[in-house]
């Protein structure tokens, strides 16, 4: 009996110390990691899809409340007018979540572009969603009133060969981003009114 108690005690104490320590570490590392992700993954992706913008969209970002979530919104200025917002979203891919950034033109409600940022898809198949410019180029200029889907499911996006699941994930991620955008549109318009002058 004593041995039993000892076993439970040791395991519990170890787990508690480990869990507590790691929580502290996470708190400390989180801003640094977010900063890294912003500079090394999302930043280049956003700058690439908004290449023609007059401003630096990563600099001109703000946070917005959506329910109890805080979202990062990046703003692109074209021709002196802040008319493009970049919304982040993610959807379940073949392995883990596929994260992406979606740029929406607010004047005519079309997609300006999209890019996959973080993923753990299979190299050479699902990972092509990030690496193959032809795939992401399909989305540019599409109207956001109709929802996106791959051709197999009756949509208008041709899926990556051998990676239908990833392609579906990208489409549903964009649909989510569009939903978020539609929900927050008044607030977004309010926020970017003063920008770009």
């Amino acid at each position: 009996m004593g041995e039993m108690i000892k076993m439970v005690m040791v395991l519990t104490i170890l787990s508690v110390i480990s869990g507590g320590g790691l929580k502290g570490l996470e708190e400390w590392a989180k801003p640094k990691i977010e900063n890294n992700v912003m500079n090394l993954v999302k930043g280049p992706a956003i700058r690439q899809i908004l290449e023609a913008a007059d401003n630096d969209p990563v600099e001109d970002r703000f946070k917005i409340k959506d329910g109890d979530q805080e979202l990062n919104i990046f703003v692109g200025v074209f021709g002196g007018k802040a008319d493009t917002v970049v919304v982040e979203s993610s959807a379940n891919g073949f392995a883990d979540k596929v994260g992406m950034v979606v740029a929406i033109n607010m004047t005519d409600d079309t997609l300006r572009g999209m890019a996959v940022t973080t993923h753990k898809e299979t190299p050479g198949l699902g990972a092509m969603a990030k690496d193959d410019p032809n795939f992401s180029a399909q989305f540019a200029g599409k109207n956001i009133t109709d929802s996106f889907g791959v051709t197999n499911d009756g949509g208008q996006i041709s899926a990556l060969s051998g990676a239908t699941i990833t392609s579906r994930a990208v489409c549903s991620g964009i649909n989510q981003a569009v939903d978020t955008y539609n929900r927050l549109k008044p607030q977004l318009q309010e926020q970017i009114k003063g920008m770009g002058n």
Binding site: S18, G21, L22, K32, N36
Partner: peptide, 18 residues
């Protein structure tokens, strides 16, 4: 395993940070 996993997470977090 608890001990090893703890240090692995430490490495993972540190590597992501630096």
């Amino acid at each position: 395993i608890i001990i090893i996993a703890t240090f692995v997470i430490v490495v993972e977090q540190m590597m992501q940070a630096f």
